[in-house]
Simulated assay, not measured.
Amino acid sequence: MKEETRSTPDRGLRCQAMKVAFADGGLNSLQGLRLVIPTGSTVARAAGCDDFGVNHSTLISAPFAAVMPAGAQLATIADNDPTGWVIALKRGVLGQVSQEAFDAVPKWSRFWDPFLREAADTLGALHHAELIDAACADAFADVISVHIALRHGHCAGVAEPDMPLTHQMLTRIQAFVHEHIAEPILVEQLAVLVHMGASNFARAFKTSTGNPPHLYVTLERVKFARTMLCEEILPLVDVGARAGFQTQQHFTEVFHRYSGVTPRAFRLAHRNAGS
């Protein structure tokens, strides 16, 4: 047993509850990238400089997560009992494929990812029930590393057949939408991101994704609202505003159209399912 401990000194350290990771700096000795996933009302701050000496400072709160270099300084904002997870991402979990994909993962990026929210909730439930050990924590870290490599680090720079927009372009658009989800988002703004005219971009986007840009943004707003409704922290009116809906009535109408129920009914159903 002692020999195994010496050969794997980071065992169980790659996936830590935020309170533990921030308190003892257990992840500071690990190299590469870290994923920060706050839960509840916790707000985390990451600060540091990139490879070019440019300073960065990012605030992260649910339902967002963020990828940071290992050397970033992490702290919470006025929270003595932070909740969430800090995960050291492993480059070689898929061999050479994931190592190349990780080169394309944008550092200092903040994004909304439903899979990561579900993973954080599962980790929280296991931790609360005292059912998570070092091996289980490492397994979660590996699965999440694979997800980050494939979902956020896809480095295809060339469009695939019948895909006029590359994965890199689509990732850039998705990141912009998530970053500005509470604001009005115009097709023209998205087109500028990939250096295209609005009409050409709209056609290319629909060909690549199956949906026109305005419908994609609307569906992302609905998904974002669902995540916040499951968090059970914000009042319904604040959920709608943070998801980018201009009025509560518009939020209710659009949410019902694409979810089949009103926001209030969705929250109640989620609450009853978890009880």
Rank of each mutant, 00 (worst) to 15 (best):
V239H: 00
S208F: 06
E188P: 01
M228Q: 15
H167M: 10
I181R: 01
A175D: 09
V177L: 03
D238C: 10
L219H: 09
H154G: 05
P164Y: 06
G157D: 05
S208A: 15
L193Y: 12
F201A: 04
D162C: 08
A204I: 07
L165V: 00
I173H: 01
L150E: 12
A159G: 12
S145W: 00
E231T: 12
T218A: 10
A243D: 06
I148E: 01
P235F: 13
S145D: 00
C155S: 03
A191S: 14
P235Q: 14
A225V: 10
T171C: 02
M196A: 06
L219D: 12
D162A: 14
H147E: 06
V146A: 07
A156G: 14
Y216N: 07
E160W: 13
L170S: 05
H152W: 06
F201Y: 08
H147Q: 13
E231W: 12
A175S: 13
Q168D: 03
G157C: 04
P164G: 08
R242Q: 14
A149E: 01
I185N: 00
A149I: 00
A149H: 08
R203Q: 13
I173N: 02
R242W: 15
K206V: 05
L165H: 01
G197I: 15
I173Q: 00
D162I: 03
F224L: 10
G240S: 13
G197C: 14
C230S: 13
I185Y: 00
A159D: 01
V237T: 11
L193P: 05
V237K: 13
L186W: 03
L165N: 01
T218P: 01
H195D: 15
H152Q: 08
R151N: 13
L215R: 06
G210H: 11
C155H: 05
H178E: 08
M163V: 11
T209V: 15
L236N: 09
A156I: 05
E179K: 05
D162R: 11
T218L: 15
Q189Y: 09
K223F: 10
V237C: 10
R203I: 15
P164D: 09
P212N: 13
Q168N: 08
T207L: 14
V187S: 09
E188R: 10
R226F: 05
A243K: 05
K206E: 07
V158H: 02
D238I: 13
G197E: 15
L234S: 10
D238A: 12
R242K: 14
Q174R: 15
H167F: 02
G240E: 06
P164L: 03
G240F: 07
T207A: 14
S199L: 11
E179F: 03
S145A: 04
L193A: 07
M169S: 06
T218V: 15
V194W: 02
V146F: 07
M163Y: 02
I181N: 00
I173K: 00
V194A: 06
H195N: 14
V146Y: 01
H180E: 04
T171A: 08
M196Y: 05
V222S: 08
T171G: 13
D238N: 09
A241P: 02
F224C: 09
L219Y: 12
H152V: 07
E188Y: 04
H167Q: 08
G197Q: 15
G153P: 02
S199E: 11
H180Y: 11
V158W: 05
